[in-house]
Amino acid sequence: MNIEDKSSYPSQEHSISCESFDTFIVDYIDDNLQDNQKRIFIHHLNECPACRVYLKNYEYRIQLSKSIFANDTDKADIPNQLVDAILAAKKQTD
């Protein structure tokens, strides 16, 4: 749903607090919210500038974590003693 699309907003009685908004975040990011939950979530997002920035920064840090570990396996060396230990352990099990 486009968060700018206000046509499908729930009525005021369905609005939620920032604290409740927080409990939806994990499922929202995974796209696991049911339609009505998503409408309520986005309604709050449109009404609350603090939660908009909060969510944007939250998503930024997730992307950051992903990026930090993206290339850390590039220089992957295994110590020779570990190779020897694995091969010796295998021999014992043969």
Partner: peptide, 12 residues
């Protein structure tokens, strides 16, 4: 007490 966010962040 009303569940409103206390701290307002600035955007990164």
């Amino acid at each position: 007490a009303n569940g409103k966010r206390i701290e307002t962040e600035t955007e990164i």
